[in-house]
Amino acid sequence: MPSGAEVGLIFALGFLGSFGHCAGMCGPLVLGVAWGQKHLTWGQRWRQQVGLHLGRVLTYAGVGALLGQAGSLLVAGGQLAGVGSGVRQGVTVAVGLLLIWSGWRSQVPNWLRWGWHPRGNPPQNPVLLGVLWGLIPCGFLYVAQLQAVATLNPWAGAVLLGAFGLGTVPVLLGLGLWLSRVGTERGQQLSRWAGRLTVLMGVLMLLRTDSMVDITGYGSLLLLGLALLARPLQRLWGGLRPLRRHLGVGAFVLAGLHTLHMVEHSFQWDLLGIFFLPPLPFWGIILGTLGLGLMVPLAVTSTDGWVRRLGKRWHQLHRWAIGIWFLVGAHIGLLMGARWGILGNVTFILGIILVILLRQSWWWRWWGREAWYEPADVGY
């Protein structure tokens, strides 16, 4: 078993590190939880916050026990505990998507109207959320995990990582309880920023996975497609149209993150290497870059102020989204088509075309469903 001095040092590491690293990296998650506690009593807030950190510390202790028992190069190398762990990657994606959904919902609570009341709150289990929180990859946590591996004892590993987790509790618990008590206009401002930071935290969670290129690329295409369908599907999905600009900006953000990751990891900032690629990936990258460039003015003008300034020209400008849709589709098809096979390529092409067809009134008339179609008011 570790000595009292070792436990004290690892506790101090967690406590001192929580003022900077933990508050910055995990702060958005704490804010997101606190935002949902405005209607609760002080006792309920306390129990939920304590349950959240209890679940997190239990996960740390469990991982510490596992690391202490194994103490092998397989575990220390990251197959289970590191960023490359399949379990942690899966949990990170799930938590990231949950954070994005929760933060976005706080900004636009009526975004979805099918099978869910917009003012209802999904059931929450703070201990379970804390358990999942404890599985999120964290560079600061790996320092303590290495100490757990070195013990070669499950109980010692559990004690060390549990002590580390307890060290991070005071700052994060105090921050969560304080934020849950803030009211009036300041509280509303913090709630809005909590939602935005929660979305950002979710995006960062996705970026820490090995599959972030696919997530951001396909995610951008999905959001752009929903933005294009928001108006024609108004009568079928009324809650989608108010989010049209949010969806477009989200598509731009994901496309930008996708591009940055490719430039940094695939090309290592050697952009001249693009000109030495085979024809299909070369033109795929060129078309994707063009699509991203055309997204910039659309994202910049996606505010109420620009809508008023541009008037009808705003709708004309944002019709570029149709061309961008084809450019992004061609980008993905040229780069990924070789992996999909004939059936996959045909399905993808039909999906790209279908989105454009659903924007056409004649398509709905041809199927005898014109009553389901919402025509363009100003041409977009």
Results as ranks from 00 to 15, higher is better:
Leu29Met: 12
Arg113His: 05
Arg45His: 03
Ile100Asp: 07
Pro118Leu: 05
Gly90Thr: 03
Arg56Asp: 01
Asn125Gly: 06
Leu141Pro: 02
Val143Pro: 00
Pro109Glu: 11
Leu97Phe: 13
Val95Lys: 06
Trp114Cys: 06
Asn125Tyr: 11
Gly96Cys: 07
Leu67Phe: 10
Gly84Cys: 09
Ser106Ile: 01
Gly120Val: 03
Val143Thr: 02
Trp35Lys: 07
Pro122Gln: 10
Gly68His: 11
Gly17Tyr: 14
Ile100Gly: 10
Gln79Ala: 14
Gly32Tyr: 04
Ser18Asp: 07
Leu66Cys: 08
Trp133Ser: 14
Leu31Glu: 14
Leu66Pro: 12
Leu73Glu: 00
Ser18Met: 12
Gly86Val: 14
Gln69Trp: 15
Leu128Thr: 12
Trp104Asp: 02
Leu54Gln: 09
Trp46Arg: 15
Gln89Lys: 00
Pro118Trp: 09
Pro28Ser: 01
Leu128Cys: 13
Leu128Trp: 14
Gln89Ser: 01
Gly64Leu: 10
Gln107Asp: 05
Phe140Gln: 12
Thr92Pro: 08
Gly27Lys: 10
Arg88Asp: 05
Cys138Trp: 09
Leu135Trp: 05
Leu73Val: 03
Leu54Cys: 13
Val57Ala: 00
Gly24Glu: 14
Ala81Leu: 14
Gln69Ile: 07
Val50Leu: 15
Ala94Trp: 10
Tyr60Thr: 00
Ile136Trp: 01
Leu97Gln: 10
Arg47Ile: 09
Trp116Ser: 03
Val83Phe: 07
Arg88Pro: 08
Leu132Phe: 15
Gly86Ile: 07
Gly82Cys: 00
Arg88Cys: 04
Pro123Ala: 15
Gln107Ala: 12
Phe19Pro: 15
Leu132Val: 04
Gly84Arg: 10
Ala23Thr: 04
Cys26Phe: 11
Ser18Trp: 14
Trp133Pro: 00
Leu67Trp: 08
Trp35Ala: 11
Gln44Cys: 08
Leu31Asn: 06
Val91His: 01
Thr59Cys: 13
Ile100Pro: 10
Gly51Lys: 01
Gly77Asn: 00
Val131Ala: 12
Arg47Gln: 15
Phe19His: 04
Phe19Gly: 11
Thr41Val: 06
Gly55Leu: 05
Leu99Gln: 11
Gln69Tyr: 14
His39Met: 12
Leu98Arg: 05
Leu129Tyr: 07
Pro28Trp: 01
Val33Asp: 09
His117Leu: 05
Gly103His: 03
Gly55Tyr: 03
Pro137His: 02
Val87Gln: 03
Val91Pro: 04
Leu16Arg: 12
